[in-house]
Measured scan of single mutants.
Amino acid sequence: MQRVNMIMAESPGLITICLLGYLLSAECTVFLDHENANKILNRPKRYNSGKLEEFVQGNLERECMEEKCSFEEAREVFENTERTTEFWKQYVDGDQCESNPCLNGGSCKDDINSYECWCPFGFEGKNCELDVTCNIKNGRCEQFCKNSADNKVVCSCTEGYRLAENQKSCEPAVPFPCGRVSVSQTSKLTRAETVFPDVDYVNSTEAETILDNITQSTQSFNDFTRVVGGEDAKPGQFPWQVVLNGKVDAFCGGSIVNEKWIVTAAHCVETGVKITVVAGEHNIEETEHTEQKRNVIRIIPHHNYNAAINKYNHDIALLELDEPLVLNSYVTPICIADKEYTNIFLKFGSGYVSGWGRVFHKGRSALVLQYLRVPLVDRATCLRSTKFTIYNNMFCAGFHEGGRDSCQGDSGGPHVTEVEGTSFLTGIISWGEECAMKGKYGIYTKVSRYVNWIKEKTKLT
């Protein structure tokens, strides 16, 4: 034993070699072989497995989906700052455009905790909710729209109204504003409101030439003092309507412009014939205590009207009353817009006519005020429907199939267009061939041609 100890002390290297040989010859039971080890760690190889990531292109799944990435790591994937920024906006807080917040056709661009709407022409605001041009839906104005110097929408209202708090709607500024039905039992019968379409306001006024200088022999019209197929109006439903009495009662109609003036057809009036105007009328054979009678003290036909040349060209006249009318729910003026808007309103496509005229061709006159909704007829169809001249200051309205029309005794009465609950004068009943005849239409004086003249002559002093 002493000898062994001496050998170990003198030859430590020998001992180490012996131990190493023993270990190498022993069977290893701690580690699995290569094949079995792979069965336990069965993990798919990654895209760049075996390579240094710093030297390969980034992978979106590896960089940002398996674990949260930084902007720089995302930049490695896209290799483009702009594309990385677009991805980053949604990656950080989701897609803010998912709810489609942009209105009126706006395009949404996502941002971090926010979004941006790219608005089409005519709109602005956070969600493109603000109209900035009158060309689109009248700028959301209830009545009139004008573009300011910086191309912003400025709404306005006709006389007797003021802008509401929203700067879009119009509200009454006087007790009985024009064009409004205020009798409670008839307010439910107000005709369907007309909503502004998209309009090209630059070209809204037709490029028409008034044929002022045409000389033409007097034409022989049949029954051209021209509501057939209409309905009984309720008291106060058309408070701007008046009836004219002269040699015979209810020979023509008219509309209240203001307390002192009536507008009617020029062919209705004769110099030297006494005319009485009755406002607030409903049943011409009954006294309903809503009527107001006034005498006409002055007749002003349009300066281009000449019955000797043509009885229905420039067929418009103004009547001055001896005493002002007292405005109330049964006696209310009709609204008159400017030339541009009167023309736009007419193009809405349908209007209402009213009167006490004959209820059928050569038949009896109506006792109760009649009204009828009539569609506008395109000019080409209008011209083809008659052998008589249709001037540019006239328009056609009615039904091709016949059966409904204005008729004798309705002449001078109103053709009105309702705009968001307020009625505007767009025409004056003038003439036609018979009444409600198939293929024939009622012919009306186009008020847009005469609004400046009306307003100039009827100013209240």
Rank of each mutant, 00 (worst) to 15 (best):
S217G: 06
E456M: 09
Q57M: 08
A173S: 13
F388P: 07
D322K: 00
L369F: 11
C407M: 07
E73R: 06
H361M: 14
E456I: 08
Y22A: 12
S204H: 11
L460A: 07
L32K: 12
A265S: 09
Y352E: 02
N147S: 12
E270R: 04
G253S: 08
A265C: 03
L376K: 06
T84G: 11
V257W: 01
G160D: 10
A337W: 01
K234C: 03
S255I: 07
P235W: 06
P414E: 03
K168I: 14
F221G: 07
G412Q: 06
A164M: 09
N80A: 07
I40A: 15
G254A: 04
G272C: 00
V326L: 11
V228M: 06
V353S: 07
L383W: 15
G421Q: 10
Y115E: 03
R191I: 13
A233I: 07
S49G: 14
I344L: 11
E171L: 12
T190I: 12
D150K: 08
Q408E: 08
G58F: 06
K387R: 12
E54A: 09
I428C: 01
F71E: 15
G363C: 04
G432P: 12
H303K: 09
V77D: 14
E320L: 04
S406E: 15
A380L: 08
K152Y: 10
Q90K: 12
M394C: 05
N203E: 07
T16P: 05
K362D: 14
L327W: 14
A265G: 04
V368F: 07
C268Q: 02
K39W: 14
V257L: 06
G442T: 11
P235K: 09
W261Y: 07
V92A: 15
D131C: 09
P239M: 00
I275F: 04
F31W: 12
S354D: 01
R180E: 02
E116M: 15
V242E: 01
A265K: 01
S156T: 13
L346Q: 08
N213S: 11
E323N: 08
T461Y: 15
E72D: 15
I309C: 05
K459Q: 13
Y161N: 00
E193D: 12
N80W: 03
G398Q: 06
Y305D: 01
G106Y: 02
Y352R: 05
G427V: 00
R62H: 10
K274L: 04
E54K: 08
K311M: 08
R140G: 09
R162E: 10
A266Q: 02
V263R: 00
L376P: 05
E340P: 13
E79Y: 09
G357Q: 11
G122P: 13
S411C: 07
V181W: 07
E129G: 09
I300M: 07
E142T: 09
T29Y: 13
H34V: 09
G357Y: 15
N343T: 12
T287G: 09
H303S: 07
T422Y: 04
A279T: 03
C435R: 04
E433W: 05
C407P: 05
A266W: 00
A207T: 14
G427H: 01
M6Q: 08
E54G: 12
W356I: 11
N127G: 04
W453V: 00
V296D: 01
S406L: 14
A233D: 05
V269A: 08
I336K: 00
S255C: 07
T218K: 08
S406H: 14
R46P: 15
L60I: 14
Q96V: 09
K146N: 08
V296K: 01
G349M: 05
G439L: 03
K440Y: 07
C157Q: 00
I429G: 14
S182R: 09
L346H: 05
A173T: 13
R294I: 02
C18I: 14
R75K: 14
V77G: 15
V374C: 03
E433Q: 14
I316V: 10
D198V: 11
N48T: 14
I390P: 11
E82A: 14
D110V: 07
E288S: 11
F360H: 14
S354H: 05
S70Y: 06
R404K: 01
V374H: 02
N135S: 12
V377F: 03
N135M: 15
S169F: 07
I309A: 13
T209R: 11
G439C: 05
I428V: 10
G412C: 07
W88D: 15
S354G: 13
V183N: 11
G230H: 12
L103I: 09
I336N: 01
Q90A: 11
G432R: 13
E124L: 10
S11R: 12
P197S: 12
G105H: 13
C134K: 03
T81W: 06
G229V: 09
H282I: 11
A436S: 09
K188Y: 13
S220E: 09
G229I: 13
E82T: 10
Y47V: 14
T342C: 03
L346F: 06
T16A: 14
G432E: 10
T458W: 01
G409F: 12
M8G: 08
I7H: 14
G253H: 08
G357S: 14
I334C: 02
F176D: 02
R226N: 11
E418A: 14
I17T: 04
D93M: 12
H282Q: 10
N135R: 13
C178V: 00
E401L: 13
G179F: 00
K347A: 12
M394T: 05
V278C: 04
D212R: 10
T190C: 04
A250W: 06
N222P: 08
E124K: 04
E61W: 06
D249T: 02
S411K: 12
T264R: 01
Q216M: 08
K39E: 13
N80Q: 07
L425C: 00
E76S: 07
Q241I: 12
K168T: 06
G230S: 12
V331R: 00
T271E: 03
C407K: 05
H282Y: 11
G357H: 09
I297F: 03
G280K: 02
T85G: 12
F399P: 12
T342V: 03
P333R: 03
V257I: 04
T264K: 00
Q167V: 05
A9F: 15
R449A: 14
T422K: 07
I256D: 01
P172D: 04
N245V: 04
I40E: 04
T287A: 11
L20I: 08
H289F: 11
T81L: 07
N138C: 02
L367E: 14
I300F: 05
A397V: 09
C28R: 01
V451D: 02
Q185P: 14
S49M: 10
H267Y: 02
I214L: 08
L103R: 08
Y312A: 06
N104T: 02
G363K: 13
S70Q: 15
N80C: 04
H282A: 09
A192D: 13
I256Q: 01
R83P: 13
T417H: 02
E129A: 09
I309F: 11
K311L: 09
Y450N: 01
I262G: 00
C407I: 06
